[in-house]
Design a binder for these strands. Structure first.
Length: 255
DNA sequence: CCGGATGTTCACCT
DNA sequence: GAGGTGAACATCCG
């Protein structure tokens, strides 16, 4: 389920672990750990804070930074509880065999990453420089630079994590639908006025869907099925592949 | 049985 | 170097 909104919810949950000392990192799925540094290097480390860049959640400790990647179906359980994800595609179900990593703390509590599809991973000291500015805080001028240098389709550029971090397939479709912009347009073809409009709607969609409960709560999401109509003007929606992802959009008002 | 799925990465083209 | 496509990863769901 995770795009930026869900990962932010997980980060907030992980805030509860700040100040706790790690006694053990249990790896139920060895393939889930990536990178040079090993999980046991975290034993005895204390969590000092949490951060998020795009879809990457970070736990800073005095022995390094633990990076959490959730793939498409990863979730975080802190102290046995999941965050606000009643609307997950799995209907909130959680099976023990989906548990990939557990971080045990000295006070007896546990933080678990559960992920049925195993497309996520965990890493100590991940390379944060591979990510562009976070979509939540990006300034309009920076967004203009991100778009202005690219001949890629607008949607593909917005989802390219090394240029702009955090937007996934659902958020991006919703943002472009609300901003009335054609996802297939060349990114650099946007006028300054259109970039402003895009930026404004990006912020609005992130805020609105955050309140509603996640990336899947958009107006367009409800219409994500074959033969669906645009919730704004009732015209037939198109279903195309843009940037390698299924894209729903309204050719009537998105231009 | 089949197709599709909120993500990332890689090989192979142009 | 940039960008596109398709595949792979592994599993669940309708």
């Amino acid at each position: 389920m995770p795009e930026l909104l869900e990962v932010e919810a997980y980060r907030r949950q992980a805030e509860a672990t700040v100040g706790r000392t790690i006694v053990r990192v249990e790896l139920f799925d060895p393939a889930y750990w990536r990178g040079e540094r090993r999980p046991d290097e975290l034993e005895g480390a204390t969590v000092e804070g949490t951060r998020r860049i795009g879809k990457l959640a970070l736990l800073d400790t005095d022995a390094g930074t633990l990076g959490l990647r959730f793939g498409m179906t990863g979730r975080l359980l802190v102290d046995g509880a999941a965050s606000i994800d009643q609307l997950v595609y799995t209907s909130g179900r959680d099976l023990p065999e989906w548990h990939r990593v557990a971080v045990r703390f000295r006070d007896g509590t546990t933080m678990t990453l559960t992920d049925p599809r195993r497309l996520g991973w965990v890493e100590l000291d991940p390379d944060e420089t591979r990510l562009g500015p976070d979509a939540v805080s990006v300034r309009p001028a920076v967004l203009r630079e991100v778009l202005g240098s690219s001949s890629a389709p607008l949607k593909a550029r917005l989802m390219d994590q090394k240029h702009l971090a955090g937007l996934g397939n659902l958020l991006t479709d919703e943002i472009l639908w609300r901003a009335a912009l054609d996802p297939t347009r060349e990114a650099r073809s946007l006028t300054p006025v259109e970039v402003r409009r895009l930026h404004r709607n990006m912020s609005r969609v992130i805020a609105d869907l955050g309140h509603r409960g996640g990336s899947h709560t958009g107006d367009l999401q409800a219409a994500r099925s074959p033969g669906a109509q645009c919730p704004r003007d009732g015209r037939p929606l198109r279903r195309d592949s843009v940037g390698g992802r299924t894209t729903y959009w309204c050719p009537h008002h998105q231009r």
